[in-house]
């Protein structure tokens, strides 16, 4: 008996095709189709601090956003430039210390020290990583894995920047509302900014570097230069997250170089769906609250992330948002072949 052979056929929904053309502005249905997911995300994030009551969960919302930023930074580098960085903690550490210094040593207020520390930290991280940019794949991943470790050991060994005690007494935000909305707006800004960027000329070059760096070289473009730009953008995001954390905890210390900041954003991105940017944010929305529930298990949390990460990688899951976007934009049917 002949086995019936089937395959899944995927077709774009009519509304998607229409919404991509100029008619999108003329009909509220297409406009709604385009805007609904964005509005849900934006409103959800903006309302979250209002909806949760306890200061504890308000804090969780901010931490979600921090990891969302780090996830964005990882996803951008990994899926749009092809640089897989296992050392996100480098940026958080550099940004955190930079902001603490700007605040304590230069006396800058929060609203200046965070942006300044993000940019300066971005420059520092880029300069540190500059020698590794010609490296590919595995090598780049290994070196980036080492960087946060080296820096934290150096701080310890030379006993600089407060050594193991860190820098206490960093200025706080002065209230839960400022605390929440600063990071939420930063996250939304970065998310939509990056989504825009990857379709601009700069973003296309970076995606070219990922697809095929030889062809980029053959086009008379310096690959290292564009990788440096990409690393700067990604590190700035990471430093922003680190600077925010330093002010949130009113302390900058070695824990800013902790493994969590490297591994969790990766897990969040893998779960949320790499290459979608928004996936990294959604992934942190899932992982962080979950890990708060696991708080009583202490460091077993990391083991738990590791397990989740392993699971997702091994079943080669496409990730949540890739799946969701596909379902939203396409319908599927089985066809006989």
């Amino acid at each position: 008996m002949a086995e019936v052979q089937r395959r899944k056929e995927r077709l774009d929904r009519g509304i998607k095709v229409r919404a991509e053309s100029i008619y999108a502005v003329s009909s509220w249905e297409e406009a709604a189709y385009l805007l609904a997911p964005r509005i849900i995300l934006v409103l959800g994030l903006l309302l979250a601090p209002l909806l949760v009551q306890s200061p504890y969960w308000k804090r969780v919302v901010t931490v979600v956003c921090v990891y969302g930023l780090l996830g964005l930074s990882f996803d951008f580098l990994a899926h749009f430039v092809g640089l897989v960085s296992l050392g996100g903690a480098l940026a958080t550490g550099v940004g955190g210390y930079a902001s603490a210094l700007a605040n304590k040593a230069l006396g800058l207020p929060v609203f200046l020290s965070i942006p300044l520390a993000s940019l300066a930290g971005g420059v520092v991280c880029t300069v540190l990583l500059l020698p590794c940019l010609p490296l590919r794949g595995v090598y780049f991943a290994i070196v980036t894995l080492m960087y946060p470790l080296v820096l934290s050991r150096l701080v310890e060994a030379f006993n600089i920047l407060g050594g193991t005690d860190g820098i206490p007494g960093v200025q706080g935000f002065g209230g839960p509302w400022a605390e929440s909305y600063i990071i939420i707006s930063a996250l939304l800004l970065c998310l939509f900014g990056l989504r825009r960027l990857v379709n601009e000329d700069l973003g296309l070059i970076l995606r070219g570097v990922k697809d095929n760096d030889q062809a980029v070289k053959a086009s008379g473009i310096s690959v290292t230069r564009y990788k440096a730009i990409a690393v700067f953008i990604a590190s700035t995001l990471g430093c922003l997250a680190g600077a925010y954390l330093a002010h949130l905890y009113m302390w900058a210390g070695l824990s800013l170089f902790a493994l969590d900041f490297s591994i969790l954003p990766i897990a969040a991105t893998v779960i949320g769906g790499g290459g979608t940017l928004v996936g990294a944010v959604v992934g942190s929305m899932i992982l962080i609250p979950l890990s708060e529930l696991l708080r009583e298990f202490g460091t077993l949390r990391i083991a738990f992330y590791a397990l989740v990460l392993m699971g997702f990688i091994v079943v080669r899951s496409e990730g949540l948002m890739v799946w969701a976007q596909r379902k939203y934009h396409q319908f599927e049917r089985w066809v006989q072949i």
Partner: peptide
């Protein structure tokens, strides 16, 4: 890259479970 992340995650799991 997946090999690194997967084996690193495995190692993390073992180490952190041991710590716990």
């Amino acid at each position: 890259i997946s090999e690194i992340i997967a084996s690193y995650a495995m190692g993390l799991f073992i180490l952190e479970a041991l710590r716990w």
